[in-house]
């Protein structure tokens, strides 16, 4: 059981690290949102799963509460993360930040049509 917890924690830490690297490496706000929020989500899912497994392994009332609340935290994370990153990206585009080295920008084109 503790092996499983360590594996989950290791995967979570690895993806969180990659998210941090992406934040430094990627050129503009949109690609940074890809890197940061996505890798962080996957990393956080595994960290929370580790907590849930720990709770189940511990057993009893306290462990059960811990596991269930960890799962609920996961659910709310999965609900709020896309909403938040969408709001950030949309606000960035509306305030006029162009995507860096973009191949196409259909939203800009649609804006010119007078949406």
């Amino acid at each position: 059981m503790s092996v499983l917890i360590y594996v989950f924690l290791a995967i979570g830490a690895l993806f969180n690290l990659l998210g941090a690297v992406a934040l430094l490496r990627f050129p503009d706000v949109y690609t940074r949102i890809h890197g940061a929020t996505k890798c962080t989500t996957f990393g956080s899912i595994f960290s929370v799963l580790a907590v849930a497994v720990y709770g189940i392994a511990r057993g009893g009332g306290e462990g059960g509460t811990m596991a269930i609340r960890a799962f609920l935290a996961l659910v709310f994370l999965l609900l709020t993360n896309p909403t938040g990153s969408h709001a950030l990206a949309r606000a960035a585009h509306r305030s006029g930040i162009k995507p860096f080295r973009a191949v196409v920008d259909r939203l800009e084109e649609a804006g010119k049509e007078g949406r």
């Binding site: 949102i33 996505k38 890798c39 989500t41 999965l78 896309p82 909403t83 969408h86 990206a89």
Partner: peptide, 15 residues
């Protein structure tokens, strides 16, 4: 669909 797209890395729904 928008939330599914945003949660998947590499794609991000803007509008």
């Amino acid at each position: 669909l928008a939330n599914s797209i945003t949660l998947t890395p590499g794609t991000l729904t803007l509008d």
